[in-house]
Design a protein around this nucleic acid. Structure first.
Lengths: 80, 80
DNA sequence: CATTTTTATACCCGAAAAGGTATAAAAACA
DNA sequence: TGTTTTTATACCTTTTCGGGTATAAAAATG
């Protein structure tokens, strides 16, 4: 199995935005409609996730999964 | 089941880049190491896909999946 | 036109994700 | 310190993705 990387673009984004919004994992799961376990595995950096579940969460923060150049990976979404 | 949307950011990106590279779906599957069926389902806009499989393909084009703000372009393809 | 190449749809199966929940660990707080 | 809140880990079940392959449709090529 691939190793979990807690610090990847998606996990970091969700964790940071969630905390900025003063939400617990439970609240985020509740408001986005995904399972609590999914929120946790996502933030822990589980490598294999379903795109539509991720988008369910990202949509709450006004974002979505898109292909981006690798060089821009870190820079692109640090705003907001 | 969710409807397939052939024209989403990921599907369009892969289809366009593949054609620019003059590759068939078979060749892209072969060179990226993912199954042929996956390439087809991705380009057809299957909503539920595994992130690491997508990234296997995007990596070949120097890209990766990241959360990006919902722009007019992405919102245009969200239906309704 | 016919023929070849490429893409799309359908089927079965194994593997793994996602959900729910219980419990343990950690963090926040008084 | 002790208490409460939040987060992390573990187990089990159901669901479904992804691979492989066969076939059909569509597109390209002569």
């Amino acid at each position: 199995m691939q190793e979990w990387n807690r610090h990847n673009a998606i996990a970091d984004f969700v964790r940071n935005r969630r905390k900025k919004s003063d939400l617990t994992q439970i609240e985020l799961a509740d408001v986005t409609g995904v399972g609590l376990r999914f929120v946790r595995e996502l933030e822990q950096g589980k490598p294999n996730l379903m795109t539509d579940k991720i988008n369910q969460i990202l949509l709450f923060f006004g974002h979505t999964l898109t292909p981006t150049p690798i060089s821009d990976e870190t820079r692109r979404n640090m705003g907001a």
